[in-house]
Write a protein that binds this DNA or RNA. Structure first.
Lengths: 235, 235
DNA sequence: TGACGGCCTTGATAATTGTCAAGGAGGTAA
DNA sequence: TTACCTCCTTGACAATTATCAAGGCCGTCA
């Protein structure tokens, strides 16, 4: 359907590059076209490229010990895929990337990044900062997923989406289907459906399509026993 | 009590350094002595040092939104603290480090690391790999904590400890109190106690003090519906 | 020595979340 | 059009985990 959707604004490693560095990288990049139901890469493949989505939709997911496919993230136009994987050792993609819609991507090779890093020590430092921050974020997610209940996880996810989208009042748009959202929150679609129903029933949110309106963030947070500051924007 | 305990063998950023690089760092390091109940640093402090524990015990923990103190990790002799935090931006410790026993540490400054990185681009590359791997591990933990139940989390934690300790038959030693273990697994101490009771009752493990014996790893894994390969050593 | 405090355990009970089954809505392809 | 198919929802029920309360054990400290 909407092939014009773009990823929520999110920092990527590409933004650390200066214009000239970016040019060097672009010169060595190449374009890729893939059709729906193909795979960009599969878990275990040698991770030698970072990809940026120009148009389309790519889902990163992995097989769980129980046999289910868990969605880790969905990338739309602008999204940068596998920016960590190419630097890991062994250099293998830890997840599979599935094409959901006809997609065009730009592929940047590991080798060209490596060259850039070697010849620009200050860039390496920035990258180290960047990845360290990602570690910090992941540790936060880790706490979030263990120490708070599903209701709170959902609201915290709302806060996350809200702060990443450009503000338009007290509304935001769910970027994925609810099935995917449930997978990301680590709950079943049924439980998610019931959480939504409860929030709507209590007037804490209203829903119209993928658009969620929150009449009062403070009330919403208080209701699920969270600090309201989670909805504050921090660039 | 046992002040001779050492941390489980775990990769640290210090091991990436060549002997000469290590010497440069050591020359700029300094020693710290702290007594029980003091804090090495608190959440929000400027993160300008990485610490290695020479002797003693340090607990890294953070305050959760519900007001509880969650233990992230316990460091014993050999442990390296805050190897990520110093590279984050803003450069603040994301957790507090509490001294549990009289402790001596070596402090390495952020500035000296930065110099090393700038003058050794290949080292930077290694560090990028190292931190990327950490990202991968955290993503695994993230899955583990959301997709599997408490019982499985406990057994996976056993596997983790087992593979990090030098093997002595089918035994391993719990490095922390059960209260801390429960906190790390994201469950209450009561639930943990009941899980242990069930495992012991079913003859899947035996417990004597902090030492756990597993008669048959394969049976244990099968009982909680996990693949036995989690107990395989992978260096 | 006794008093206190933390950790661990256990029981009873409640809250949370998952599982199974079913049906509606909407999209796609023959 | 019909025949699927997936997503979303709902209900009934089961499993998991938390909460509250209590007691035992084992340290430390006065």
């Amino acid at each position: 359907m909407s092939s014009t959707q773009t990823c929520p604004i999110e920092a990527s490693i590409l933004q650390l590059l200066s214009p000239s560095q970016r040019n060097i990288l672009e010169a060595q990049s190449h374009q890729i076209n893939l059709n729906s139901h193909e795979y960009l890469f599969e878990r275990g493949d040698t991770a030698d490229h970072i990809y940026q989505v120009n148009r389309g939709k790519v889902t990163l997911s992995r097989l769980m010990p129980n046999g289910e496919q868990k969605v880790f993230k969905v990338f739309l136009s602008g999204g940068v895929i596998a920016e960590m994987a190419v630097f890991m050792q062994p250099r293998e993609y830890p997840m599979s990337a599935h094409i959901d819609q006809e997609t065009t991507l730009t592929a940047y090779s590991y080798a060209s990044f490596k060259e850039l890093f070697i010849s620009n020590p200050e860039l390496s430092l920035q990258v180290i900062s960047f990845i360290s921050n990602r570690v910090g974020q992941l540790m936060n997610s880790l706490d979030m997923l263990t120490q708070v209940n599903a209701n709170q996880r959902l609201v915290m996810h709302f806060a996350d989406i809200y702060s990443k989208q450009k503000r338009c009042g007290n509304r935001f748009t769910l970027p994925n289907t609810k099935k995917v959202l449930a997978s990301q929150l680590g709950i079943t679609p049924e439980t998610l459906s019931r959480l939504f129903r409860k929030l709507k029933f209590n007037g804490l949110i209203t829903e119209s399509g993928a658009c969620i309106t929150v009449p009062d963030f403070t009330v919403l947070c208080r209701e699920v026993d969270l600090v309201p500051s989670i909805f504050q924007h921090n660039h």
